[in-house]
């Protein structure tokens, strides 16, 4: 029987920062090793497996964004960090209207620079999908990699574009197109507020 390679927290962070393939291996590994326990944590609050899974995937996505943007500085082990993100997301997403003062006070004391502050409601997901779908595939790819904080040089290499300046110009043009879409669909933009 083969034993799967184990990764330390530091190795996982390096993998997330390296490229998308390594990022996927790290994501899969985190899901395998910590996913079940994080879901159990959420289930203690919510009793809904659907909510627990939704929160786990969103929390993991927010963690990856934080790592890529340099907001995760290994201040706590990955499992503890993601669990904390997930609890916060669950609370904001599924218990927004609930009076849960103690928990709320505790959670709101935390630093505000983390990406999970933007939770994905169904409305938001749909709006974002509609707006992004108006852009060409190449634009979507450039903006996706840019949002993951890949450098212009890295994006040029990945998307086989001739130079970092070409990527920068393309990104600016794509954002301009997106701005005009947002301007022309104010009813959609409102859904994201």
């Amino acid at each position: 029987m083969f034993k799967e390679k184990g990764y330390s927290d530091d190795e996982l962070v390096k993998m997330i920062l390296k490229d998308e393939r390594s990022m996927n291996i790290a994501t899969s590994y985190i899901l395998k090793t910590h996913g079940k326990r994080i879901k159990l944590h959420i289930l203690e609050q919510s009793e809904s497996m659907e909510e627990a899974e939704d929160v786990l995937y969103e929390g993991l996505a927010a963690f990856i964004m934080n790592v890529r943007k340099g907001a995760y500085r290994s201040e706590s082990p990955i499992r503890v960090y993601i669990t904390s993100i997930c609890r916060r997301i669950w609370f904001k997403k599924f218990k927004r209207m609930m009076l849960h003062k103690k928990f709320e006070e505790y959670e709101l004391e935390k630093p505000k620079n983390l990406f999970e502050d933007h939770i994905l409601t169904n409305d938001m997901e749909e709006t974002v999908e509609i707006l992004m779908s108006t852009l060409k595939k190449k634009c979507q790819d450039v903006l996706h990699l840019w949002a993951l904080s890949f450098s212009m040089v890295e994006i040029a290499t990945k998307l086989k574009m001739s130079s970092s300046q070409v990527v920068m110009n393309r990104k600016n043009l794509c954002l301009k197109e997106l701005r005009s879409q947002i301007e022309s669909k104010p009813h959609l933009a409102k859904l994201m507020l």
Binding site: L31, A61, H118, L120, L131, A147, L175, L178, R179, I182
Partner: peptide, 29 residues
């Protein structure tokens, strides 16, 4: 504000894609 909104949409879209990717990887696992 319009610039900020566009950036926000792009980041949320990436978050959405990462979330879907995590879901897919979990199902594959």
């Amino acid at each position: 504000e319009l610039f900020k909104s566009a950036q926000f949409v792009v980041e949320l879209n990436t978050l959405r894609q990462l979330k879907e990717n995590a879901r897919k990887l979990d199902i594959e696992n």
